[in-house]
Design a protein around this nucleic acid. Structure first.
Lengths: 152, 152
DNA sequence: TACCTTTGCATCGTGCACGATATAAACGCA
DNA sequence: TGCGTTTATATCGTGCACGATGCAAAGGTA
């Protein structure tokens, strides 16, 4: 049985892929109330932490490219959650900042992380397990982003 | 700072989401050689394990709905990797089975899992860590799929 | 200053994901 | 047997992801 590793149950990527999709889906009821999607929520988070960011700074924080973020930011601008303006010092850059409407969603978003972490804690999984998992994922993210850079 | 949990660095879902995307991207060079995508690779895996499966059986194994799988399977049929036929015993069901071409890709796929697990093992992360992470993810998947069922 | 390269962002095409909905076959039960 | 309900699959619309490519501004260098 030398193809045992090919079985679905042996693969690491599949649980990662499924858990990610399902957890994102668990966010949905809360994000629906705010009228946004999960990737849009991520953009709000980094802009709640930083008054203004260039598109490039957002790509670095969220590990998404401009071909994903440009249309997404345009949709959010149309929803009046944020503004996009060319930088005056560097005409190539586009500066993104939240509108009052975008800022005001922060209060509504505050209880979300707490609600979701409660779903993820069980008899067998405590908070320190979750932190350890996060550390592993972050190390993988570091490796995998470095890999990509090496290819360029 | 009562909104500390709202920070990107505090969230569990974001590392899950990023690691999943990046790991899938790491598969790409190998899957490109076979002319398939990651979700198509998952379909092949379950069909290498089972001679024939209904669309419904595939949705259960991959946790994807028919609205995702139907077009995906059609693309794979057009690529002559598999065949779709209505069941004779239950005309509602569509039975999916691999063509010789689909079966033959198995040999090419064999070395892939080994190559990728090597990327994920580091000074700080050994095989038992990975197994533990898989167990946690599988427990979450169980919880989150049960949650969805409860909503229906 | 002319020119080549890099950088920042955007557009295009393709393939997922997924909620909402449609449709036909099968089932259950009065 | 008739008929409402469930089940299996498919279609449609929208929003990501992402590789390939384009383009203009900025930077570097002879």
């Amino acid at each position: 049985m030398d193809d045992a590793q090919l079985k679905l149950s042996s693969q690491v990527c599949f649980p990662l892929y499924s858990a990610s999709r399902l957890l994102t889906k668990a966010y949905k009821p809360y994000l629906d109330e705010m009228g946004i999607t999960y990737p849009q929520y991520l953009v709000l988070i980094v802009l709640w932490e930083n008054d203004e960011l260039s598109v490039n700074q957002i790509t670095e924080k969220l590990l998404l490219n401009s071909n994903t973020l440009s249309p997404l930011l345009k949709r959010m601008e149309k929803m009046e959650l944020l503004q996009r303006n060319r930088s005056t010092t560097d005409e190539r850059s586009v500066i993104v900042q939240l509108t009052e409407k975008g800022k005001s969603l922060k209060d509504q978003a505050k209880p979300i992380p707490d609600k979701l972490i409660k779903v993820l804690l069980t008899e067998n999984i405590n908070l320190s397990d979750v932190l350890q998992l996060k550390e592993m994922l972050n190390e993988w993210i570091k490796i995998l982003t470095e890999d990509n850079k090496n290819l360029e």
